[in-house]
Design a protein around this nucleic acid. Structure first.
Lengths: 137, 137
DNA sequence: TCCTAACTTGGACTTTGTCCAAGTCAATAC
DNA sequence: GTATTGACTTGGACAAAGTCCAAGTTAGGA
């Protein structure tokens, strides 16, 4: 994630302690935090950080393509730092745990031309659902 | 959709005018209304209907498997009455228009066992994104 | 026609997110 | 090192989407 900070600086970002902390909190694999969770973890390191700054920073990271926004359930959006490797999501219907997964083939290819309604289709997001080992009966 | 009302009555639903109107509003193909839109259209026919009742009824229809909840963007959930024929969604990134589409093959099959992390995977939702004919440059 | 459990209502409340004016500070210039 | 300034941060007000509840209403069976 330190290269992230480098990339951001190269793009003219002002490197504040708040932005640094938000970027650090988002580091890791299979990380899918809500804005509130990001704020809570950031505040553990930098108590004065405000919710507005967390929202601003997350929005900027999404715009820059460094973080993905994942809307899985109509509740809070989640933020996924794994933006540079194509992947999909597997979600536990029991506890809500989320894993990054890599299906075979290109999901876009499964949509025939006569099912595209004249759209210029550019992306396909797949959400797999099931029960994780802990939630299985 | 009138068979819907029959099915519901058969399951012990009390058939009130409010529930009837909500079910009628949801009738049709490519219908993906938000709860607020459902309330607005229902209120056009039954002015005193309350938001709470619309939310209750939509929730019951989802629980009964008669309507699907579609969380496409982290904003309001949408409700899709086409619950009895498997389908996926194609969404315009420009105007937000939604179409039901039918991709080839089973998206579940694309997820290899070693990418399932021990989950019992039961469903896959695919959201295709692109620009509709009106929003295309 | 009555009765009652089920349904509906409106309003208060929660969660998630946005907006803004005022204050602060990182990075550049000197 | 210091000054400067525009970008960044802050807290609080606001908005949108949804939930909850006590009180009132009603569908459908007796």
């Amino acid at each position: 994630m330190s290269d992230l900070l480098e990339r951001l600086r190269a793009r003219g970002w002002r490197l504040t302690s708040q932005r640094r902390v938000v970027a650090e909190v988002l580091d890791g694999d299979h990380v899918h935090l809500t804005a509130d969770e990001v704020h809570a973890r950031a505040a553990a390191r930098l108590p004065e950080i405000s919710r507005a700054t967390v929202y601003n920073t997350l929005g900027e990271l999404v715009t820059l393509g460094e973080v993905l926004e994942v809307a899985t359930d109509g509740r809070a959006k989640r933020y996924d730092p794994n933006a540079h490797r194509a992947h999909q999501h597997l979600i536990c219907s029991g506890c809500g745990a989320i894993r990054d997964v890599h299906p075979q083939g290109d999901p876009l290819a499964a949509l025939p031309a006569d099912e595209r309604f004249g759209f210029a289709v550019t992306a396909a997001e797949v959400t797999y659902r099931g029960l994780c080992p802990n939630c299985r009966p």
